[in-house]
Design a protein around this nucleic acid. Structure first.
Lengths: 191, 191
DNA sequence: GTCTATAGATTGATAGAC
DNA sequence: GTCTATCAATCTATAGAC
């Protein structure tokens, strides 16, 4: 039962707080406190300060979440059922965390889009990564590359939008509606 | 050529800044400066401080944006063309404002979802209003009430997600893809 | 590498003159 | 109603002892 090293604890705590409360309202002092790390260690491991910490967090948490969603999609053989299952699971996770844990980077992405270009770019790269992975996945059932890409884009966008509405309403319904719509759209594209 | 009154100038400036930079990183001092209002006037007109200002801004700007989108949908007779036209217009507006003016409440909604319940509720009410208006609009072509509601939900969600990706990438493509997907989904529901 | 102390700027909010 | 001055708290970041 060993604790993760200091750097990892800082990153994980930062990921959680950025995800739930965003970039601007997450203080480094709180990150230090909740990760049980001395304040100075943040600047020891992340000399670039808050921005560097956020940049690495976006990259790491973004990649991890992409893999998680893809694994979820792979866990059911039928693609249409798989889509609905993935959205339903996201709904369960959201409700189970008191509507806190949705997309790991969306809040930060909107916050920094117009004011912090390095962070904006970091979020854009993660979204591109997700779109690419989604395109490959849809490509198994949709031969036309352009359609597969369009479906991947749309699935990510409707998921992001559903997260916003579900967190605001503190209700899982938007995610379930989104999953249903997305599977209908995929079905239409597979004809 | 008279200037709007002080209270209105404060509200409008707040709406712009909250929309572009979010709630946490928008300071009251900046709102006062950019609205050419004395700092004390903010507390004169909004005794509840930043939170009251944000609450009224969410309600006002949210309602206004809903009307704007609905008017956009009404401006083209064919529903499917209308949807694509609305998303294309949103893409143009976004690009024309250097990818700043997307949804007026989404950034704030995500920021406050887990930390400020009055503001969370204000955003939830705006989304509900939009869903209701969208349901009525789709209801003209989709007789089944449940389907109309589902389409309205999905249109709002995919628009919100497209705004996130478009701002991050500084590219209009996500909005165009979203519009195309949404019109396909509506077409499938109208059969 | 760990940890404390603190600088320097900025925040939301208040008081009070006019 | 307008405007200035200021408080107390908080923020990111840095310096330096151990």
């Amino acid at each position: 039962m060993t604790l993760p090293d200091t750097r990892t604890r800082i990153q994980d705590t930062a990921a959680t707080l950025f995800r739930r409360n965003g970039y601007a309202s997450t203080g480094l002092k709180r990150i230090a406190a909740e990760s049980s790390a001395p304040f100075g260690s943040i600047y020891h491991f992340f000399p670039g300060g808050k921005q560097q910490l956020a940049e690495e967090t976006i990259r790491t948490a973004g990649r991890e979440y992409g893999r998680l969603v893809l694994a979820l999609l792979e866990s059911v053989p039928d693609p249409l059922e798989s889509i609905e299952h993935a959205f339903a699971t996201a709904a369960e996770n959201l409700a189970a965390t008191d509507y806190a844990d949705a997309c790991p980077i969306a809040t930060v992405a909107l916050e920094v889009a117009s004011t912090n270009d390095p962070l904006r770019l970091a979020t854009a790269r993660v979204f591109d990564e997700w779109v690419q992975a989604g395109t490959d996945w849809f490509g198994r059932w949709v031969p036309d590359a352009e359609s597969a890409r369009s479906l991947a884009y749309t699935m990510i966008m409707v998921l992001e939008g559903a997260f916003i509405l579900a967190r605001a309403a503190r209700a899982p319904d938007p995610l379930l509606v989104a999953g249903h719509s997305m599977s209908q759209l995929a079905r239409a594209a597979m004809d």
